[in-house]
Design a protein around this nucleic acid. Sequence first.
DNA 1: CTATTGATGTTCT
DNA 2: GAACATCAATAGA
Length: 188
Amino acid sequence: MNETKGGVDFTLEPAELASILIGATLLHNDVGGVIVETEAYDTTDPASHSFNGMTPRNAVMFGPPGHAYVYRSYGIHWCVNVTCGKRAGAVLLRAIEPSAGIEIMRERRGLAPLRLLCAGPGRLCQALAISIAHNGADLEKPPFAINPRETAPDIIVGPRIGITKAVDQPWRFGLKGSRFLSKPFPRA
DNA sequence: CTATTGATGTTCT
DNA sequence: GAACATCAATAGA
């Protein structure tokens, strides 16, 4: 509704928010860029961390929308979600197109080529210095900011990556033609 | 380009 | 003890 004044409506359900976030700008301490890839995780989705109810790890998902749910992936990486919807929904941020603080991100990522700076949930968190310390943080307040897109881009949809349940659900969203995706989308 | 595999630590059963 | 919303390096086409 009121998509005025630099606000994204985080009460939208995950699939809708995931689509709307494509083209929005994510910043952490003025470092970041344009979101080009997301995935939706609904509370009714067996692949969602919230599917089996609240645990210490996923408690943030059951809190207010618009906050960061950060978890450790494969023991090595961080992944960040935006909580959303009426109950325990989330949108996984998978890739951004670097536009602000590129030199800082390049140092954090160890001289990675521009195209791979933020192409993937683990890489994105490393480049933006997001960690468990930010779990539960309000993404609408400093040091974070999410600015809505101004015009709707062409969006491509496909199955999600790296999951073993509900693998056929088309809940991965990407900016069509972007060179900064974590993986190509199947042909459309 | 695709496919495969090892590294790594936390969470949950 | 098993599973895991990943990455980087490697080999091959």
